[in-house]
Design a protein around this nucleic acid. Structure first.
Lengths: 239, 239
DNA sequence: CAGTATAAATGAGTCCAGCTCATATTTCTT
DNA sequence: AAGAAATATGAGCTGGACTCATTTATACTG
């Protein structure tokens, strides 16, 4: 293998692969999994249909590549953001916001993952399980850190926390896209993030620091008290 | 229209429809959405393939019917169980356990929903949105009740709580099916339920009852108050 | 009850999209 | 330059959802 030409060859292949993935990305983005046509992806990439199958075993593998790209970016930026923060609260808050923003922005790509994600057998030996592990490792690190600092509850296997965290986020994103988005009373994503965070933190064992927890109750009690007083006032004589 | 025969006709149609849905249920259960064959469903139902399309527009509509049946049972049993319990904690705990058990048992059917569930546009005008609303209304009632009793935080739009609740559960079910199930250290579903509940309750504003700092006092005060109110309510005599 | 209109059922055939494979083209080696 | 190996091609195969012209069952009428 002469060094110069061999490298060029390899480079060409990798470039072609990149072109295909980009074409697939566009097509999936536009039409979703079922709507996307292999023929059209080939055309977009400037290749014959058969050529796609030299690079990817089938349509699913192609999705895998597209999704992998998304996860790579997601994981990297999330990791960076977490590193820049110190406190557990800040880190979790950031991760909520980051996840929310990223997933909403690239929803069409995520739609590709979900079905596989839920077909257990298929999922188990897909690439996705790996992407996911890498990504959620960021969350795990935050948690382990928080537990060792005594800021988070440590009495629960970490996977429960993971499920609460990502499960809540995914559902919230769905709700946002199904309802929120269209109407006028739309909250900003950041507002949503902070409200979600305010549920997640106590779930993980951080008692809502200053007033948030105690005040509503106090307020409630006060209200009840006032009601009682009022009622008593209206019947002042007895007792 | 002669009453006798017309009724018989309608009945026949409805019965056939039932037969088809049952056949579809079995086929989907066995092979999943993609693996299920319309031809085979027809055969199972003892009909010609074309006949299916007189009853259901397409494969998706058939899935809708199957899933609808599942939701009907789910909603009914959940509603019943909730009615039998008084305290917010008990109710939520029950709902967690019930949802977990039901969904794990009929996972194959749920797999049919999820992909639609996440294709926003498609979901918006599917039947599923209705099933879901009816089902989650049970949760909503528990929450509203709990808030008005002052046991849950009322500062958050309810849909956030819904997303946390069902999002966490769905993710947990997935995790259970992907990992838990097979290995030896499998926890019982009930154990899992209680651990999940221990995260969800604080998220919704119920401070983990026994040991946490200021709560005993608040609780004590609240109890006294309730007692007073109750006494007032029950003794209309004084005035 | 015969005759006719309408509803329901049938399954051979269409359509379409993912994938294959025999053939053609390019690239590398000597 | 020639042969070998690697790539690329697209016509055609396949399998499955769905359609539609035709047949069969059911209801209605005089």
């Amino acid at each position: 293998m002469s060094s110069g030409s061999s490298q060029t060859r390899r480079e060409r292949l990798e470039e072609r692969e990149g072109v295909i993935v980009s074409a697939a990305y566009d097509e999936f983005l536009e039409h979703g999994f079922d709507g996307a046509r292999m023929a059209k992806i080939a055309r977009r990439a400037g290749l014959a249909e058969g050529t796609l199958y030299l690079y990817f075993r089938n349509k699913n593998a192609l999705v895998g590549a597209v999704v992998g790209r998304f996860y790579e970016v997601l994981t990297q930026s999330a990791g960076k953001g977490v590193l820049e923060r110190e406190s557990t609260t800040d880190r979790l808050g950031f991760l909520v916001e980051h996840h929310l923003n990223s997933c909403i922005a690239e929803w069409s790509i995520l739609e590709l993952v979900v079905p596989v994600y839920w077909r257990i057998r298929e999922y188990r030996d897909s690439d996705f399980i790996g992407f996911n592990r890498t990504y959620s490792a960021i969350f795990d690190r935050i948690i382990r850190d928080g537990v060792s600092r005594g800021e988070l509850r440590g009495d629960l296997p970490i996977h429960f926390m993971r499920d609460l965290f990502f499960g809540t986020l995914e559902h919230s994103i769905r709700t946002y896209l199904v309802h929120g988005q269209s109407t006028d009373d739309t909250q900003s994503v950041d507002q949503i993030a902070s409200q979600i965070t305010s549920m997640i933190l106590p779930a993980l064992g951080i008692n809502p620091p200053p007033d948030e927890a105690a005040t509503p109750q106090l307020e409630f009690i006060t209200q009840r008290l006032e009601a009682v007083v009022e009622r008593l006032d209206k019947s002042p004589l007895d007792r």
